[in-house]
Write a protein that binds this DNA or RNA. Structure first.
Lengths: 195, 195, 195, 195
DNA sequence: TATGAATGAGAGTTCATTCAT
DNA sequence: GATGAATGAACTCTCATTCAT
């Protein structure tokens, strides 16, 4: 019992650390030994926990996606104004420490998804989850055609994240945040109040 | 001379084919032998052409980026109306066969750029090139703050490309094109004429 | 007591099943997990019963040799005519279902015996046991030089078993049995009555 | 050219040495590294020559079978009397240095054949080759029913080889040779002249 | 008595690369 | 200019085994 619980906790810790490794090195370049170096957990133990290397990567993707979603929900909890909530979702990009990790992992997931049907299903489901989350806020904010707008907003967020994470010197995080706020205003349409 | 020219032609052909391989398998998973299988050119010959495997990948990225840019310019040539030109750039995404290859290679480049300073410089320069191309059209179309708008437009394009290439069943190419057109209108601001 | 007896019974069952596995896969290729799959008994339990993997294999060999001997004795019990008894021993090869298992295990034992002194001693003792069993019948049948003849007969049986078990299409079981009967007649000498 | 020829020669040498290793350790237990230790040829070179480990083992079997057959033919060449020739074939068992290797490899082949259809076909073809070789001599020696007799003789040879190779203390090589000579006389029938 | 968790050792295989031609 | 032969490095994976319960 207690060993099983300890084991489960250990597994989750390993998943977190492995996520950092995958974000830093890329999924293809992540070896068992890299995760071992980052965690102190032996290679065979990783295999015991996760199975093959690819199984481990998939587990990392799922875990990271779940954490990301949970994190945003947490941030959203204290906010009630839909416009504030939208902005909170959007600036999830620029805010937290580790958000680079989040975006890198998202790209890694996307890449993996394009070759693995199981991961594709996961990623598309996550994608849909984000759409719905955003669409609900758009609707509450009085925006027209919530799903369409939500798609545009999410595309904008994703598309801005890429150069930010890449470290485009012309696009600091602050600049990105301003761009994002401005873009939201435009996308929500002329009738929506500006942020 | 003629053999050098023939050689250069062969190299370019190999780069095209290698680009397809990289798009299909991912850069990390692209082995010399995969390119050999796709081209009939022996492993040693690839090394003779490009050097190490990573050199080859970088050459593929540069070649693909150049081709992409050239292709858009070509498509833009017959168009004069800035709004039409903008839309042509934007729907570069949805149109041609092989655009999946383009977008996949873009993601591969982005990933490689995260870890290789040389590639990062290339990718950021390309990025800037696209911004300027778009900004010029925004300005010609009478949009305000062309660079800001250009960044938003490019982000929208990139952000929409991802689910399209991943094959999101809720986002057909036609739907993406409509979204894109709508998004452009909104981003260019209420004063800009609708597309 | 009862649990010990149950345990001993379980161990014997496991040995039977493990024998099948060894015959099918070969001793070297027999993993604990193969036996687990065949018996439902966990790996650790197998180790608890037998010790190391090699200990288990040796136990399988001894068990199988014993069973084989017991089985032949059983078949011999109702027969009194030495010639019939000899033929019964000889055709132990062609008769029963499961005789493939027997012969395969014999080859596996032989191979193991080549490298393990303990198993070699067991196998040579078994070998001697068969010789004596056969020699007694040869003597009773009036054959000359019983031990020599017994050796020849046993060699003939072993030598015929190999292609039969291998599934030589030119040597059906029926053909093997006829060959064996003919061979016995010749080996027992011209003065012995034909079978 | 010369490098290719050198390569072919090296390959054959390696096959000889690998045959010794397989005979000594058993096929299943033969690792690339064992052959490396025996030959000085690196593991990857072995793989370059043969492919997978199993491919190497199969190559060893074929090579050994061919060599064995060639060797007997060589020994047969100077002999004309069919009875002498038969005895030469039969005592192929006891004679040469390395005959243990031959028999051990034969058992290894047999075992491999029982799980690999390709090897089974090879082994059965070899088996048939030996039958035909023996049958021709039986016929020349005036024996009746040459194929049947050949089968019995071959079985006797195989069946005697096993305990000899195992080192049965009651069956020295000299004793085995006497047994074999006696067995041949009996199997060829009372009308055939004794050896 | 029986079993799951964890782990180290060892093997096969892939692959880029070097060298010689 | 182009290519095949040979080889070392690195990685995944399997498996027996030990430990704790």
């Amino acid at each position: 019992m207690s060993s099983r619980r300890r084991s489960a906790g250990r597994r989750a810790e390993v998943l977190d650390a492995a996520g950092e490794v995958v974000a830093a090195r890329g999924a293809d370049a992540t070896r068992f030994s890299d995760v071992t170096a980052a965690t102190g957990v032996g290679v065979s133990t990783l295999q015991y926990y996760f199975g093959t290397r690819e199984d481990m990567l998939v587990a990392v993707f799922r875990h990271a996606a779940q954490r990301d979603f949970d994190l945003v929900r947490e941030r959203l909890a204290p906010l009630t104004d839909p416009r504030e909530r939208l902005l909170a979702i959007a600036t999830h990009l620029t805010g937290a420490v580790g958000s680079d990790t989040t975006w890198r992992l998202w790209v890694e997931s996307w890449r993996w998804a394009s070759r693995d049907p199981g991961v594709r299903a996961d990623v598309l489901a996550d994608y849909r989850g984000w759409h719905e989350l955003i669409a609900a806020e758009v609707e509450a904010a009085g925006g027209e055609d919530p799903m369409t707008t939500a798609r545009l907003i999410l595309a904008l967020i994703d598309g801005l994240a890429l150069p930010v994470v890449l470290g485009d010197p012309e696009l600091t995080r602050a600049a990105a945040q301003r761009l994002l706020a401005g873009g939201l205003t435009r996308l929500l349409g002329p009738t929506a109040p500006a942020f």
